[in-house]
């Protein structure tokens, strides 16, 4: 068990050790790494000197804030309406949303659609097409449906309309499901890269993941090392990759252990439904 969890954790540790290692020592080293080799932070300096990393962070932050806000408004509205058990047309409305989970137009028509709406090469192309997720909506609806009807009935007698009931009664009682939703949406925006790759052309609009892709997958570390000799470039480009993995993953990994129970709760609500 101990061995198993170590095996699962080791790749992450290795990345951290490598990122703090001296690039030449690291290149000369073979095999497992149990501690940073002649530790220094030069790779990190190189990463933070790269303007693209900052641009990426800024764009991702914008997408995160605007995207999650929109997600929450849409999901809450849909979940509230679809949790009214006596509403006429409920079946049709639910089907209308749920059907999209199982069938879609496909990658190419979706792309052409975004293009025809004039959203390509804007950050909105990364926000609007994913304005809500039917799966998350179901989780939230399940939670809303669990709120006792009597509360709602008594509010109605006091003359409250549905908007008031939603804002004053349902939402204050749904703290944990709201937390789950915000987390799910935030993680998915943080990790998304494919839409950015196909829709964005200007580099100053790139979110962080796309910047990472350039460096990690396409092997392009050149604009971080203009001032170095070519020998040095070859070796430090390796440790730069490890450093950038750490820089981009740390924010999520830092908050995650504290929020773990909310994530797990989300899976449970979803599983009961599914």
């Amino acid at each position: 068990m101990l061995l198993l969890s170590f095996a699962m954790l080791y790749p992450i540790l290795y990345v951290i050790f490598a990122s703090f290692s001296d690039s030449n020592a690291f290149m000369a080293h073979e095999g497992l790494l149990l501690y940073p080799l002649s530790p220094n932070t030069r790779s990190y300096e190189k990463v933070f000197q790269n303007p693209m990393v900052w641009i990426g962070y800024k764009n991702t932050l914008f997408i995160l804030v605007v995207g999650v806000s929109l997600n929450m408004v849409m999901t809450t509205l849909a979940a509230y309406v679809l949790s009214r058990k006596k509403l006429k047309g409920l079946g049709v409305m639910t089907f209308f949303v749920v059907f999209t989970m199982f069938f879609s137009g496909g990658m190419i028509p979706t792309y052409l659609n975004v293009q025809s709406l004039g959203l390509d090469n804007t950050l909105w192309a990364l926000i609007l097409p994913g304005a809500m997720s039917a799966y998350n909506m179901i989780i939230m609806r399940t939670s809303f449906a669990g709120i006792p009807d009597s509360l709602e009935e008594s509010a109605k007698l006091d003359g409250a309309n549905h908007m008031v009931i939603l804002l004053r009664i349902v939402l204050p009682l749904s703290g944990s499901v709201i937390a789950v939703m915000i987390l799910y949406y935030a993680v998915s925006h943080w990790n998304a890269w494919f839409n950015a790759m196909i829709y964005l052309r200007d580099r100053e609009k790139y979110p962080l993941q796309l910047v990472l892709r350039e460096i990690l997958i396409q092997n392009d570390t050149s604009n971080m090392m203009n001032d170095l000799s070519s020998v040095e470039q070859g070796s430090i480009s390796e440790t730069i990759k490890y450093a950038i993995i750490v820089v981009s993953t740390v924010p999520i990994l830092c908050v995650y252990p504290f929020l773990q129970k909310y994530f797990v709760k989300g899976v449970m609500i979803g599983a009961i439904k599914g």
């Binding site: 990472l212 892709r213 997958i217 990759k241 993995i245 993953t249």
Partner: peptide, 8 residues
Amino acid sequence: ISMVVICG
């Protein structure tokens, strides 16, 4: 961990 980082 994001897919890009995993693949990296």
